[in-house]
Nucleic acid binder design. Structure first.
Lengths: 117, 117
DNA sequence: CGGGATCCCCCGCGATACTG
DNA sequence: CAGTATCGCGGGGGATCCCG
């Protein structure tokens, strides 16, 4: 059976999570619920407005998050995880757990290499 | 609480899966077991030797796959998933399942948009 | 306040050629 | 057979400035 990246279903999920700030945004919204643009930005020091906007747009495009605009001055925009988006939570949690363990794995590996040197 | 990409545990796992051919390589080795370099290359039309080598090296670096060289002419190199690497299987399966469903989700969404137009 | 528009840089990835 | 070495591009991501 021939394999191509475009046909790999895993990529469908991966493509949504990939993006420098996407996992952070998703974990934050999953924990904290609905948040304003400025709250998101404040919680992520280092991110630019352009990047935050872009990542949010891409997640919205995939129906993972919802964007609600309140027509008022000054503007108010709120973001939250959609029902559908919550189906990603088990995957994110699994990756978080695996990632935490993997950090330990690397440290252990380095120590083993020191012993044998 | 301040969030930074470098501190996100999810990234630890994500970084390992990210790479154009990595999910395919992992799924293939998980299904088929041990495979030679040439078998891997043949099963993935479109991949170059350089890329296959690079992706394999990166996975090996993280202890996800094992590389065994047989000192003979012509050369023979076999790759397989490590015990540790198998801990990624649940995540890959979850992403595969989610990704499959997400493809359907997009199709449904497009049809809904056609109706309302 | 919550963006959009521009410019720029880095690096993942591909094509090609060479090697023990 | 299973790799390295070199060259080049396209796109993700950052910095900066402007807008209703």
């Amino acid at each position: 059976m021939e394999k191509k990246p475009e046909n790999c279903r895993v990529e469908n999920a991966l493509g949504i999570l990939v993006g420098k700030w996407k996992p952070i945004i998703l974990l934050y919204l999953l924990q904290e619920g609905t948040k304003r643009f400025s709250e998101l930005k404040r919680s992520m020091p280092g991110i630019t407005q352009k990047m935050l906007t872009k990542q949010l747009r891409e997640l919205e495009e995939e129906d993972i998050i919802e964007r609600v605009v309140y027509p008022q001055v000054p503007p108010k925009v709120e973001y939250s995880i959609t029902e559908y988006g919550r189906s990603l939570e088990p995957i994110l949690e699994a990756m978080h757990e695996w990632g935490t363990n993997h950090a330990l794995h690397k440290v252990t590996k380095e120590k083993d290499q020191q012993k044998s040197s």
